[in-house]
Nucleic acid binder design. Structure first.
Length: 105
DNA sequence: CGAGTGACCGCAA
DNA sequence: ATTGCGGCCACTC
């Protein structure tokens, strides 16, 4: 199907929207799945001007640190995650065991 | 049309 | 370990 350059953006949105509750994903991961492993910045840009309806709260940095531009700051992000059962300690989440992979076995 | 920015990541020194 | 820079795509001025 006319993937027609589905616009990297569309891919990112699709992936983020597919993140299950209680799971986390990193910008680099999403960017890589979208087609560019180095376009993590674009993912961040999309988060700001893309679709605010997507669970960006489940999207964190490589080490598990919450995003900076999130509405309310990391505090709002950590609270949103806590609501889903994700324990954010020191504005950081145990991504090591909560990191979700789409092709994950 | 050209340049700059952006919620990041990876490598080099 | 920390600091600094480049890179990628899309959008705004």
């Amino acid at each position: 199907m006319d993937q027609d350059i589905p616009t990297f953006k569309k891919e990112v949105v699709n992936i983020v929207m597919a993140i299950p509750k209680g799971r986390l994903m990193t910008y680099g991961q999403i960017a890589a799945l979208a087609g560019s492993p180095r376009a993590a910045r674009i993912v961040g840009w999309i988060a700001h001007f893309g679709d605010p309806n997507l669970p960006w709260q489940r999207v964190v940095s490589k080490e598990g640190y919450l995003a900076r531009g999130y509405p309310g700051g990391v505090s709002g992000n950590s609270k949103a995650l806590a609501r889903e059962g994700v324990i954010a300690e020191d504005y950081k989440v145990p991504i090591d065991r909560l990191l979700w992979w789409p092709v994950e076995k």
